[in-house]
Amino acid sequence: MSAPLLVVRDLTVTYAPPRRKGSLGTGAALSAVDLEIHAGEIVGVVGETGSGKTTLARATVGLVRPAAGAISFEGKELGVLRGRDLRDFRRSGQVQLAFQDPLRALDGDLTVAQVVAEPLDIVGGLDKAERRRRVDEALGLVGLETSFRDRHPRQLSGGQRQRVSLARAIVTRPRLLFCDEPVSALDVSNRNLVLRLLDTLRTELGLAVVIIAHDLSSLAGVADRVAVFYRGRLVEQGPIGEVLARPAHPYTALLTASAPSVQLEDRLHPDQLRHPLGDTGRTWSDGACVFASRCAFAHDACDEQPALLTVAGSGPDPTRRTAACHVADAWRTQLDPPLDRLDPQKEAVS
């Protein structure tokens, strides 16, 4: 495999005062995160609100400065960039962020073409004809006809608005695109439409795409890899098929067990994996596993946060699959009721 486009090492980000009371006790929005992203790859980032997904994106584009760790893009260390260099990097538009329905916040009088062209102002140095060409190119890539140029965002459906916001994000021809919850405001059909579009963009532009989502099921059809966050920690990551078919971390298992499904089959039930809030009957130290207070398998060793380790016996390239749980290989044997009563096909080692 080629050298990664983005390398995140031991990244820790703290927001001075906790942003929302109770959401992150320590004030750390991200703790010791390791992640690599390759060109042409789609990586899903999942986790609950406040788990640090957006912070990861913000740190990568240089909007927040890490407290520790390093981020490098195409081998260039971003943390050491200062002043002009940092501004130049931001301006290059090589890494773009597309926020959830950003158009809502924009001036209603702007046209679609103006909205899409805006990031080009920051890049600068393009003449009028070139700007127009870029806007048409971006609209074309997201499947919007040029007749949409003069419409206003309020005249668009949710799915169309999301496509405009993607056009806006790719107009600078980025190498890496972070999409923050691109589909959570859309209905299922439009959700699939936008995800397919991201897939096309990756193929046609060789773009690396990070899709931040709170819904695992929508990622199953499009992402190559998935990274699962819980309270600022990366708790599991690996090829999406393997992770979803046989989660190694109890929180990932809880996510898959909780996902809505039209198949009314027997599968793991959320109650087998977690305690109701505040019900474990013990207090954990600050350095405990982030999932300890909810985990059905928590034990004495969990008072210390486990490191992200290779998951045994998984896939052809085991180094690609990691999880942070002391009993990643063993918790299944403690399931109540035991696993053999549960869908054998789904639990088969892939």
């Binding site: 299922v188 059909s189 959700r191 699939n192 199953a220 059809g221 979803l244 809505p260 039209v262 599968r267």
Partner: peptide, 23 residues
Amino acid sequence: RALLSVASIGDWTRRTLDVIPGS
């Protein structure tokens, strides 16, 4: 049937993203 084809299937091995064409 169309809605079912785009619903959250819960089958992780199914890697298709169907859409209902048109609006």
